[in-house]
Design a protein around this nucleic acid. Sequence first.
DNA 1: GCGGCGACCATACACCCAGTCTGGACTACC
DNA 2: GGTAGTCCAGACTGGGTGTATGGTCGCCGC
Lengths: 232, 232
Amino acid sequence: MTPSHTAESARRSAGDPPPAELRSRLLGALEGLLAHRAFDAVSVIDIIRAAGVSKASFYFYFASKQAVLAELVRQAVRRGHEAADPWVSPDAAGPSDPVEGLRQGVTDGARLWRENAGVLKAIVESWGSDDGLRALWLDQMNSFTDAAVTRIEADPEALRHLGGVDVQATAAGLTWLGERLYYLAAAGVPPFDDQTVLIDTLTNAWTATLYGRRAADGRPAGGAIVDGHEGR
Amino acid sequence: MTPSHTAESARRSAGDPPPAELRSRLLGALEGLLAHRAFDAVSVIDIIRAAGVSKASFYFYFASKQAVLAELVRQAVRRGHEAADPWVSPDAAGPSDPVEGLRQGVTDGARLWRENAGVLKAIVESWGSDDGLRALWLDQMNSFTDAAVTRIEADPEALRHLGGVDVQATAAGLTWLGERLYYLAAAGVPPFDDQTVLIDTLTNAWTATLYGRRAADGRPAGGAIVDGHEGR
DNA sequence: GCGGCGACCATACACCCAGTCTGGACTACC
DNA sequence: GGTAGTCCAGACTGGGTGTATGGTCGCCGC
């Protein structure tokens, strides 16, 4: 065996590859595997084979395969927060209609999930059975909840409609509803495998909770999202 | 079960124990273990030790430990459906106020989860990584969704408020929100570890979605609503 | 009362995986 | 050319699943 290293020399050759490049190869390998397979159907051996890295090196850079996933999740969520940032700040060039603002945020979330489906599916399926992943995911959900609370408390109409309802708990519920529906969509579970249904349902939940009114529904079925603002 | 010999005597003694009694001993053993431990921290060996049953017998009655969990889930959900049955049928001596009816259903769900916390936590944490459990859980959620759809379509006020919104998707969303929040409550995640917060938040989501109004706040005592943020 | 059968136990085994550790090879730099 | 750093190959322990084998007990038909 050992046909002189298949994929461009597992060995460092001419000083070009930066140190700790193996680390990102491992990250990329797991990400790739997760595109086609569930996290706990992936073994450490699969990862190191895909990365062309030895077991010893794997355990030099990561404590476990859960740690690799955790790093991928942090990367994905960091990108997600950057995307959601303009949505949180109230008057930063967003749509003036608050319902349209919500729909925009929901749509951004759907895009984030589409672009990181493998990694996010993996964390959602695994955070229940690993303490490190659990802490990480709860932390991420808390940060999304906090952003939602900030958003709500800057919104007089929402505050008025909510009255004395617990804002923190309401925001947390909406956050977790998002986690669930995005996951089901990514997993292909009907009816949320249809992006239009997903976005309409989530948007509707937010607007009904915060404003007591329906979002303009996309369409009963089929067509693209035409946000016609229909009275009734 | 089997009052005569408690947990000792793995051997059949005097013809009293019915055949296939080992099966229920195995079910009980897993249920007991799940009260204190996560499902995937339980091995087949743990189960057979707790049940006082041999490995060979285990694999005679069940194909895997997932199959044991599946049976426990079916039992728990069957009880749950029986409990929720009066809630679905519209005029069967339930509370006249539909909001109170919803709160009752939500409260019943919370009780079901409290009484079967171990088993239900286990399925929620594991259905993502086993095909059999996945099919089972999706099926259960579908049956709850169907019940909700039936309930909604028999409710003129809800229908009027929903207008053209996709009833199926809305009902599915509310069902999955319940799954998530009940699970978080069972797992002790704030703020839903507080039963009052859990029930208020879920009830509020249902009433806001179906009727566009807030549920009457929980705690009937006190009169004035305590607004403001509860410390997480 | 004897042989067989069915329910059950004990254990060994084949296989897979996680995580640790050793030995050796290559490169860079002094 | 030596030394330190980086990496690989693979052995090894320990634990898990699921199967296969042989033995033990009580019962039932004869």
